[in-house]
Every structure is written in structure tokens, then in C-alpha cells.
């Protein structure tokens, strides 16, 4: 649905994006992830036909974004970084205006506007002037504007900026609900957003795509290891050696828990091995007491930092420390399957 080949854009001598290539299949959600200034907005502006590229081609639904701009514009909904809102219009009036601009036929307009408002939860504010809306509502009007003409391709530049946590969840549900019938590209620098909404992720840094894959594969392939955080007390002598002997365990770090007699073990494992049961039984057999055990998974944040931080020349898979070992409390990464404490 979207094919980007060797796309480059320069502002004077400064390259904003450099040789960017990716494709998005119909019905897919692609997350565009990168630090501020990485080239996300530039790429999206080129795809929307707003900016011309310096080199390379981009095609949306088979049409070239530059030479067949009008055909592309009819098929995309675009939410720019700053929602393009007219302060002196009401929400409904604004959406009608956009629907007219986007070529929604007169008969469908009212239904389309109502649908977009319902999808973005805007019904209560439909007669409010846009200048009176809060930031969250403005963002949602921007989103409604992008979907009001039911375009096959939707380009969203940071769609959840300025929303409160509940609205963020609603918008994510909305975006997921749009997938399938629509092809969506969204950019963000909020990492959990990508792992929760997107089918695939493209990580961009300094104008170059550094990785494209599903969030899960990226996390597994690039950091590669699962691990466990274990709280123990009692006989912890020789425990480290015994644990290290278990197949699949890569290394073990022991650190005292402050204000407690317990110790915290960080156990890193090799990829795809699950030695949790062996670890637990080893601790118990060696006379220790097991208070809590939690699976730790590398998060997209780890992946992202690996890929976008230049000070680390070590390849990510070789890096033995995805978890910082100074951390005094067990990591509480919000992966749902991680929470399986096994008290003795």
C-alpha cells in the first residue's frame, strides 16, 4: 500500500532523512519510532505530498506522491504534528469543511462527519468553537479530520501527544479499530505506544532507518535474552555458582536489598531458554528461601536505546546487561506475563 524507496530529503547541506526504504502492507499499522529530530515528521510530510523529496520515490496506493499528488491526496488522511484547526469554527462546521475539501459527496457528508465524531468521542463538543477546546479535544478533532473522508491510508504524526492516559487508551483503541480497513502509519517517541498498537515498527535515527520488524521480534532479536529477578534470603553462599551451572543461565548478579535481610538476584538467560523452574528448585534445594520471582523482559525501550545510542559500540546481542544492576528494587516493566511471583 505504501512503498518508500531510497527516499532522501535535504534542507540545504543538512540531510533530514537519508536513503529511507520501507513498505507497508494493506491493513497494517506501521509505527515510526525515533527520537525528536530523527526525520519522522519529514518522512510523513513527504508521504502526505506536503514536502517534495530530494531523491528517491514514495508511492501510496500505487500513485507517486510527487507526480500524482492529487490522486495520493484523495487517498490519505493526514494528522500533522500540529493539528490544523480553524479556531473560529465549531467542531462540526470544521469537519464539514474538511469533508467538502476532501471530496466527500454531499449525500455522505453528514453521515461521515457523524461517524468521525463518534469514533473520536467528540459528540458532546460538536457545537463548541475549536478555540474553546482543551488540548486533548483539539488533538481528537485533528484525528477526526484525518478520518472523516474514510481514506484507505492514514498518516498520523504523534497522534497521542497532549492526551491524558485515558484518552491515550481510547485513541489507541480507535487506531487499532481502524486497522484492517485502513493502512496506518503513525509516528511517536512513546515506546509502549508502538508495542501496543503497531504490527510493525520502523526505528529511525539521524534520518536513517535502523531496524524494521515486529515489536516482539525486535525485542527478542536485538536484546535476545529473558531474565529473572528473584528475591531470596537465608543461605545464599555458593548460590551464585549453582545457579550459573543451570543450562540456559548466562550470568547472575547478587545485590543486597536495602532495609532488608533479603538479597536480590538478577539472572540473565540465553535467548529462548526458560530455566525458571530449575532456578526455583535450585534455590530451595540449597536451603535458601524464595520470596518473589519475576520474569524480566527487555522492553522496546532497551531496543530503542541500543539502536539509537551511539556510545555503545558493542553489538546488542553480545551485551550482557540489558537490566541496570544498580537498581535497588525489582524491575517493574509493565509486561503482563511478567507478573508471576512464586512465593515459597
Amino acid at each position: 500500500m505504501i512503498e518508500v524507496e531510497h527516499l532522501s530529503k535535504r534542507y540545504g547541506p543538512h540531510p533530514a532523512i537519508d536513503d529511507v526504504c520501507f513498505t507497508v502492507e494493506p491493513g497494517e499499522i506501521l509505527g515510526f519510532l525515533g527520537p525528536n529530530g530523527a526525520g519522522k515528521t519529514t518522512t510523513m510530510r513527504i508521504l502526505s505530498g506536503y514536502l517534495p523529496a530530494t531523491a528517491g520515490t514514495a508511492r501510496v496506493a500505487g500513485y507517486d506522491v510527487h507526480s500524482q499528488s492529487m490522486a495520493v491526496r484523495q487517498r490519505i488522511g493526514y494528522l500533522p504534528e500540529t493539528p490544523p484547526l480553524y479556531e473560529d469554527m465549531t467542531v462540526r462546521g470544521y469537519l464539514f469543511f474538511v469533508a467538502r475539501l476532501k471530496g466527500v459527496s454531499a449525500g455522505d457528508r453528514a453521515a461521515q462527519v457523524d461517524l468521525a465524531m463518534a469514533q473520536c468521542n467528540l459528540e458532546t463538543e460538536q457545537d463548541t468553537l475549536i478555540c474553546r477546546l482543551s488540548k486533548g479535544f483539539r488533538q481528537r478533532v485533528g484525528l477526526a479530520q484525518a478520518i472523516v473522508h474514510n481514506p484507505p491510508v492514514i498518516i498520523l504524526d504523534e497522534p497521542t501527544v497532549g492526551l491524558d492516559p485515558r484518552q491515550i487508551i481510547e485513541v489507541r483503541h480507535l487506531i487499532k479499530g481502524l486497522a484492517g480497513n485502513h493502512t496506518i502509519i503513525l509516528s511517536t517517541h512513546i515506546l509502549p505506544e508502538v508495542s501496543m498498537t503497531c504490527d510493525r515498527v520502523a526505528i529511525i535515527n539521524h534520518g536513517k532507518i535502523v531496524a524494521t520488524d515486529t515489536p516482539d521480534t525486535l525485542m527478542e532479536a536485538l536484546v535476545g535474552s529473558l531474565g529473572y529477578a528473584v528475591e531470596v534470603s537465608g543461605a545464599t553462599q555458593l548460590l551464585t555458582q549453582k545457579l550459573n551451572a543451570i543450562a540456559g543461565v548466562r550470568d547472575v548478579q547478587l545485590s543486597p536489598l536495602p532495609d532488608s535481610a533479603r538479597m536480590l538476584l538478577h539472572i540473565n538467560c540465553h535467548g529462548h531458554s526458560e530455566p525458571g523452574a530449575a532456578i526455583a528448585s535450585t534455590i530451595i534445594k540449597s536451603g535458601g528461601q524464595l520470596h518473589a520471582m519475576q520474569r524480566t523482559r527487555p522492553t522496546l525501550e532497551d531496543v530503542f536505546l541500543e539502536l539509537t545510542t551511539e556510545e555503545e559500540p558493542i553489538p546488542p546481542v553480545e551485551d550482557p546487561e540489558p537490566i541496570p544492576d544498580e537498581e535497588p528494587i525489582p524491575p517493574t516493566e509493565p509486561t503482563p506475563e511478567a507478573a508471576n511471583p512464586e512465593p515459597k
Partner: peptide
């Protein structure tokens, strides 16, 4: 000023 030019420039309008 209001960034609405981005809407006009990405709509199928000459």
C-alpha cells in the same frame, strides 16, 4: 500561523 496551510496543501485541492 495556525498551521492550517498543511491541511489545505495535503487536501486534493489546487
Amino acid at each position: 500561523k495556525a498551521h492550517t496551510l498543511e491541511l489545505l496543501a495535503t487536501s486534493p485541492v489546487y
